[in-house]
Every structure is written in C-alpha cells, then in structure tokens.
Amino acid sequence: MAPVSLGLSDDQRFALMKLRRNVSDLTRPDRDDQYLLRWLRARNYDPEAAEKMLRTSLQWREQWSVDQILSDWEPPEVLQKYFPSGICGYDKGGAPVIVVPFAGLDIWGLLHSATRSDFIRMTIKTLEHLLKVAQEQKQKHNATRAEVVAIIDMDGFSIRPYAWRPAGEAVIALIQMYEANYPEILKACYIINAPKVFSLAFSIVKPFLNDYTLRKISIYKNDPGKWKKALLDNIDPDELPVHFGGTMTDPGGDEQCTLKVKPGGRVPKSYYFKKVEKNGDDPFFNSSTTVVKKGDKLCLKFLVLEEGSMLKWEFSSEGHDIKFGILRRDEEGSETTTVPIHRVNCHLAAETGSLPCSGPATYTVVFDNTYSYLRSKKLHYSIEVKPPANGVLECDSLQ
C-alpha cells in the first residue's frame, strides 16, 4: 500500500514507512496506513516506540479475546441493564456520538454484582462496538479516520463512591487500558455539568491521560447555554437528544432518549453476590505488595470527603528502611505537607498510624526511595480512609 502523505512531513512519512516495514508480519486488510498512524501519533512519530505499543496491544487483544468479544461474549444481565452509555447519533462529519451519564455508574453495585474481569470486558465490548460503528461511518462518508465523539454528563455526580479505593482503581485501570489500546480514536470529548468537586477527581485521573487525549477534552460547568452551543456547533439537532440541546426524543417522548442511552442507576441488591464481606475481610481490602525501585517513589492518592475522616496505614519493608510522608491537596489545588517525608525503619517493625483528615481533599501517601541509588525496596502496605463515626459512605450502607 502506498504511504499516506496527506498532512505528513517528510520525517513523518519516513517514520510511517519504517513502522510499516517493522510490522510487516502483522499485515491485515484493516491494518492500513491510517491504522499505523494512530500508533505513530500516540508515540510522537517514534517508529520503535509505536511498534512496541502496537505489539503489546495485540498481545493484550489476544489475552482478552477482543476480536471475538462482540460476537462471542454475552455480558451478565446486571451489566446489560446498569452499565450507562449509548450511541445517540452522529456528528456533522459522521463520527458516532456516545453519551455516558456518568452519575448513573453505580461502581459499588457493579463491582459487587459482576466480576472485575466482566466489568473490564463490558468496557472493551462498548469500545469495540463504538469503533466498529466508526469504521462503518468512515467508509460511508469516505472519511480519512475512524473517530468517535463522547459526551460525558456529570450532572448529579458524587465523588463519594470513589473514596472506596477499588472503585478509583477500577476507573484508572480502564483509562490506562483505553490509552494503551485505543490511541487516536477520540475526535472530541465534551465533559458537561461538571461540579466544583470534579476538578479534584480530574486531577487524580489526568496523569493517566496522554497529551493527545487531553487536547480533545473540553470541560464545561453546569452552564447549559455554553455546552449546548458547543455540542450543536459539531452535532446536528436531530442527532442529539432534547436533553442535550437537540430535537431527538424516544418514541414515548423521553427527552434523554434512554432507549438509546442506558442511564444506569442504582444496582438492586438482588444482583449482589451471595456473600458481600465486611471491609476487613473483603478481598478488595487486602494489603498490597510492590517494589519501589531505586531512585524512585510510590505515590498513592486517597480522596477524603468529610471532616473527621481518618487516614489509616500499616506498612513494612524487607531488608532496608524507606522514606514516608503525606501531602494534602485541596479543591483549589493548594498543596500542604501533613506528615513530613522522613526515613522509617519499617524493615525492623511494621509502621502503623492514623491521621485526622478534612475534606474534600486529596491526600497523597508517599513512599520515597529516591535517596537510594543501589537498592530497590520491597514494600507491603495497607492504607484506607475511614469516614467519621457519624458519617456513612454510600458503600458502607451496603452490607
């Protein structure tokens, strides 16, 4: 196939030619030059880095049977009913528009009604369907790229469920999966009705997003006049539900078009696994083990929502000490040190402690091994945020 030259510099065409040659063993009809350019753009036109990213992704696709997931995998009923998302229509260039009512994602309920693997597979299936539609639209409109548009509605969003660490970890894992395996498919992302606390949540996930993704994201507060205009600049009214400024309704007159866009919602307890353990015995809350490499540090972020919450920790290392400290960042982005970073002889005895916290804020627990140029440190740790005695996190009420 002749190289794609439109819009490419000489260096970029050379990088494409080199990548095409290096991955000639992966040739398939759907892996054309535009497909290869996705990986090159994601790696700043470094053909070696793009090749590594592509091969790693293809291994991931094989491990998760991604090529068969649309035809062979049937999601559990709870995910079919309560996983919020749906394609409402197409933008002016023909790209499919997916709407995600994020507040409808009952992360606690889903992770106690479906396995983590099935939760991941449901996300993969959603992305693969979206990409399939984008490919069909590309051919229909003779477009250059297969791209998608996302509208993420944060109306009614609460950060509270994501103070439960497995929930936050699940979201970050999905972001990392998307960035590693679906580069350059995003045409535009509109995050609308973002509450003030959203800036705190976004500051946590932002480091996991690549620059090329961040450039496509536009964030709007609860100002319908502004975000509706932005949507209508790129999406015709008849391709957009009335709720988002368009003219589309369901046959029954539903202005949010919930027949097309599943709203999610609270998962009924009847879907829960037969035995939902107490926090202390729940496998989600087991201690973790990692290696902090020499000259490196481990930073763990925790959301604190209420005054009087307690950040509790216990950790130990093998063979040698490590530095430990805690930082606090408030909604305005101001950062202070609550526990100065200092060396702890946790290789001699486990270190335990607690810290009264105020929120909303992000507390970052730091294990610092930058002072060690010779030794990596194996670390065992268990850290969690406990709400105040008179305060109950949403997940705590689900026994």
Rank of each mutant, 00 (worst) to 15 (best):
I152T: 12
F83E: 01
G94F: 03
A150Y: 06
K138R: 15
R160G: 04
P166I: 06
S158L: 12
L131W: 09
S117L: 12
N142S: 14
I98E: 11
G104M: 09
L131Q: 11
F102I: 08
G93C: 02
L105C: 03
S113Y: 09
M154Y: 05
I124V: 14
V149I: 10
K140S: 08
N142P: 01
A95K: 05
G93P: 00
K132S: 14
K140F: 03
H141P: 01
Q135N: 11
G104C: 10
E136L: 11
L110V: 08
Y162I: 02
M154E: 10
V133N: 05
W108F: 15
R165G: 01
Q137W: 03
G104I: 02
S85R: 13
A150L: 15
T115P: 00
P84E: 09
I124W: 01
D118I: 06
V149D: 03
A163Y: 02
R160V: 15
V148E: 06
K92T: 07
R145W: 06
D91C: 03
N142C: 08
L130Q: 09
V100W: 07
E128S: 09
M154W: 01
S158A: 13
A167V: 04
P166D: 12
E136W: 07
C88Y: 00
K132R: 12
H112N: 15
S117M: 10
R116V: 14
N142I: 00
A114E: 07
T126R: 14
A167Q: 05
F102Q: 08
A167N: 14
Y82C: 10
M122D: 03
V100M: 12
H112I: 13
V133K: 07
E136C: 04
A95P: 02
R121V: 06
D155T: 08
F83V: 02
S158H: 13
G109K: 07
L130P: 00
Y82N: 02
Q137R: 14
A103E: 11
G109A: 09
V100S: 03
G89A: 03
G104K: 02
L105W: 15
K140W: 04
K125V: 00
P161F: 11
E136T: 10
E136Y: 04
G156T: 06
A163W: 04
I98M: 14
Q139H: 06
D155H: 08
T123A: 13
P96C: 06
Q135A: 10
R160S: 15
